[in-house]
Simulated assay, not measured.
Amino acid sequence: MTRVRAAAGIILRDKASRVLLVSPTYKDVWEIPGGMVEPDESPADACVREVREELGLSVSAGALLCVDWVPASPPWDGGLMFVFDGGVLTPDQIATIRLSPDELGRFDFIKPERLDEVLIPRLARRVAAAVAAIGRGGVYLEDGRATASR
């Protein structure tokens, strides 16, 4: 039976519709909040747990915005990346963000049209597709790209 790794992320926005990105302390790239799904944990639960651990925020994983199949890239196996809608954060919520110093060095809100300047290409495609899916229904991607009907 095939096994794949799974991770879940969340799109959190400010009132200007900018997307919250985080800078992990253990790598040189920006990401959306989230992380790996643990054994016997749902992607939605993983997302909520990671946001609480990394940012100190209690949010709900709303609508599923996209599922992205990521091909294997040794040493990593292929995987499924889930992205949920976390809604718009209030100024009070933003003020209470507390980064886990072991995991995150900083955060910033980025305009959607600038995602490709900040994120690695595959993640920029995934996040842009997720943002475009808000209020429209989720999409299926492969390596960050929409697939044609098969």
Score class of each variant (00 low, 15 high):
residue 124 A to C: 09
residue 127 V to M: 09
residue 36 M to S: 14
residue 3 R to H: 13
residue 48 V to P: 03
residue 9 G to E: 04
residue 81 M to L: 06
residue 64 L to T: 12
residue 48 V to E: 07
residue 27 K to M: 11
residue 148 A to F: 01
residue 30 W to K: 12
residue 126 R to K: 09
residue 106 R to Y: 04
residue 137 G to K: 11
residue 75 P to S: 07
residue 56 G to D: 02
residue 53 E to T: 01
residue 35 G to R: 07
residue 91 P to M: 01
residue 129 A to G: 01
residue 15 K to W: 05
residue 100 S to Y: 01
residue 70 V to S: 06
residue 33 P to Q: 15
residue 66 C to K: 00
residue 132 A to I: 06
residue 62 G to S: 08
residue 105 G to N: 04
residue 36 M to Q: 15
residue 15 K to Q: 14
residue 112 P to N: 15
residue 96 T to F: 06
residue 74 P to G: 11
residue 105 G to D: 12
residue 54 E to M: 13
residue 26 Y to W: 12
residue 12 L to Q: 08
residue 47 C to D: 02
residue 57 L to Q: 09
residue 86 G to Y: 04
residue 27 K to G: 05
residue 49 R to F: 05
residue 26 Y to S: 14
residue 36 M to A: 14
residue 60 S to H: 12
residue 64 L to K: 12
residue 66 C to W: 00
residue 82 F to G: 02
residue 104 L to M: 11
residue 24 P to G: 00
residue 110 I to C: 04
residue 35 G to H: 09
residue 130 A to P: 05
residue 19 V to T: 06
residue 111 K to D: 08
residue 136 R to W: 00
residue 47 C to G: 12
residue 129 A to W: 01
residue 99 L to I: 14
residue 35 G to P: 03
residue 77 D to N: 02
residue 1 M to L: 10
residue 60 S to L: 11
residue 18 R to P: 02
residue 149 S to D: 00
residue 93 Q to C: 06
residue 68 D to Y: 02
residue 70 V to I: 15
residue 90 T to M: 07
residue 49 R to N: 08
residue 45 D to R: 15
residue 33 P to I: 10
residue 69 W to R: 14
residue 23 S to V: 03
residue 81 M to Y: 05
residue 109 F to M: 14
residue 83 V to R: 09
residue 114 R to Q: 10
residue 114 R to V: 10
residue 60 S to F: 00
residue 92 D to T: 15
residue 69 W to H: 09
residue 78 G to L: 14
residue 120 I to Y: 06
residue 130 A to V: 01
residue 133 A to H: 01
residue 5 R to S: 11
residue 113 E to F: 06
residue 99 L to S: 10
residue 10 I to Y: 00
residue 149 S to L: 15
residue 72 A to D: 01
residue 50 E to N: 05
residue 48 V to R: 15
residue 13 R to K: 15
residue 137 G to N: 11
residue 88 V to K: 15
residue 133 A to Q: 11
residue 110 I to H: 07
residue 42 S to E: 12
residue 121 P to C: 10
residue 78 G to K: 09
residue 34 G to E: 01
residue 7 A to V: 05
residue 144 G to W: 07
residue 65 L to H: 06
residue 71 P to N: 11
residue 40 D to G: 02
residue 55 L to T: 03
residue 123 L to Q: 07
residue 21 L to T: 04
residue 131 V to K: 12
residue 55 L to A: 05
residue 67 V to A: 09
residue 127 V to A: 03
residue 145 R to D: 08
residue 53 E to M: 03
residue 70 V to A: 08
residue 141 L to A: 10
residue 39 P to W: 03
residue 122 R to K: 14
